[in-house]
């Protein structure tokens, strides 16, 4: 279905991984389902480029009007870039979670960890879509 793009990988924590031109560097964001559950997003706290995370570590915080939520790294790696546009317009995550609402780019320290992530079909089943 259109709210779960077929070319992405997904975590059970509702983050997605999108491939870039650079091997082992992936874009991380939250899914349409996650932004819908959170409601209006007020701001996000993200790490700086160069920060390293293990899979399932908290890499940031997302504050919506009604609730705060932790962001969990779907895979281990090093942050290569942060979407600085989210500072001025965090609501872009609500509007375009898979596009302009991306959060960080991460260089995988162990590319095999990708295999533990969900396909679009598996993620759809996970969210009951």
């Amino acid at each position: 279905m259109s709210n779960i793009p077929s070319d992405l990988l997904y975590s059970t924590d509702h983050e997605y991984l999108r491939a870039t031109d650079e091997p082992d560097v992936f874009i991380v964001g939250i899914t349409h389902y996650a932004q819908d559950q959170l409601g209006d997003i007020v701001f996000v706290e993200l790490p700086k480029a160069g920060a390293t995370f293990g899979a399932h570590d908290t890499f940031g915080t997302i504050e919506a009007v009604k609730a705060v939520s932790e962001l969990f790294a779907p895979v281990s790696g090093t942050v290569t870039e942060v979407n600085s546009a989210l500072d001025g317009d965090p609501a872009v995550i609500n509007r375009d979670p898979f596009g302009d609402g991306w959060m960080i780019k991460i260089r995988l320290s162990d590319p095999s960890q990708k295999d533990s992530l969900l396909s679009a079909e598996a993620y759809a089943a996970h969210t009951g879509a």
Partner: peptide, 9 residues
Amino acid sequence: PVQYPTGIT
């Protein structure tokens, strides 16, 4: 209803 599709803001 906590909100409608309009959104809280």
